[in-house]
Amino acid sequence: MKNILDIDGCKAVISLDPDIGLFRGEFLGLSGGADFYAKDLEGLMEEGRASLKVYLEDCAARGLEPYKAYSGRFNLRLDPTLHAAAANAAAAENKSLNEWIADTIRAAADAA
């Protein structure tokens, strides 16, 4: 079961807040926080759209960039055995390690 909703092109992770008995959505990739609550999927979609709209309007009014900026670079630390296994898997597909990791991450992200 996926716990990510796409609301107007923005991804939101969904969880259950057992203290209040509601589902909670939190948008991903925003430069600030925007969350929303509802008791069901229909409500989550409605509240999510409203929350996102308010967030984007607030950013526009303040002249702020609403989305996080990503450089496309990150450091990855692996156990040496896993590093070797990944390098071998990349070589077996005639890819650089970077290319193989990027393809693997892309496939996992697309499945989410």
Rank of each mutant, 00 (worst) to 15 (best):
M1V: 15
K2T: 13
I4S: 03
G9M: 06
A12S: 14
V13D: 01
V13I: 13
V13A: 05
L16R: 11
D17K: 09
D19R: 15
D19C: 00
I20A: 03
L22T: 09
F23S: 10
L28N: 08
G29A: 04
G29P: 04
L30P: 05
S31A: 08
S31N: 09
G32K: 13
A34Y: 14
D35G: 10
F36A: 10
F36C: 12
A38D: 11
L41S: 09
G43F: 02
M45S: 06
R49W: 05
R49T: 05
A50C: 06
S51F: 02
S51A: 15
Y55S: 08
Y55N: 15
L56Q: 03
E57H: 05
D58V: 00
D58W: 04
A61W: 00
A61G: 08
R62H: 14
L64R: 13
Y67A: 11
K68W: 06
A69D: 04
A69K: 11
R73I: 05
N75F: 06
P80N: 06
P80F: 00
P80Q: 08
H83A: 06
A85S: 13
A85P: 08
A86T: 11
A86Q: 05
A87S: 12
N88H: 02
A89I: 10
A90C: 06
A91R: 15
A91G: 09
A92I: 03
A92S: 12
A92T: 12
A92D: 13
N94T: 00
N94P: 11
K95G: 01
K95H: 03
K95S: 02
L97N: 07
E99D: 09
I101S: 09
I101R: 11
A102R: 13
I105N: 04
I105M: 14
A107N: 04
A107C: 03
A108L: 07
A109W: 06
A109C: 03
A109T: 05
D110K: 15
D110W: 00
A112N: 05
